[in-house]
């Protein structure tokens, strides 16, 4: 059990992020949940790369054991791409707020529904 502790924490963070994304209607809260989900993936990659007694992968004659550098490279780029996509999501949320006046999912759906009904009624009247 203790050998898999890091995986258990990863899974906990993952389902916490998943829960926030599914259960909360607020778009910004959803984005925060999504970034928690993302961090759990970082942990999933980084934890297996660690070696006990190893050091950071910066070569020096005094050390022989290094942790695995490959996950570090992958996650490094993933973090920067993550913040770029977060910004894109936030930009979408801001635009939605400007058009609909709200960023709550339920209210957006209700507004959409009302607009559709109004359009249908308008078509019936024209027909």
């Amino acid at each position: 059990m203790i050998e898999h502790f890091s995986y258990i924490v990863t899974v906990f963070l993952m389902i916490a992020g998943l829960y926030i994304v599914i259960a909360r209607g607020n778009l910004i809260k959803k984005l925060v949940g999504l970034s928690i989900f993302q961090t759990s993936v970082y942990l999933l990659y980084l934890a297996p790369g660690k070696l006990l007694g190893g050091t950071a992968p910066i070569l020096a004659p005094a050390y022989g054991v290094y942790s695995n550098p490959l996950p570090h490279v992958l996650i490094l780029t993933a973090i920067v791409v993550g913040v770029a996509t977060l910004a894109l999501g936030l930009a979408l949320a801001v635009r939605i707020r400007e058009v609909y006046g709200t960023i709550e999912e339920d209210e957006i759906l209700a507004l959409d529904h009302r607009i559709e009904e109004a359009e249908e009624q308008g078509e019936e009247r024209r027909a």
Partner: peptide
Amino acid sequence: LDAVDVAMTE
């Protein structure tokens, strides 16, 4: 976890 570069970025 020895990932200093990643920690800096995060």
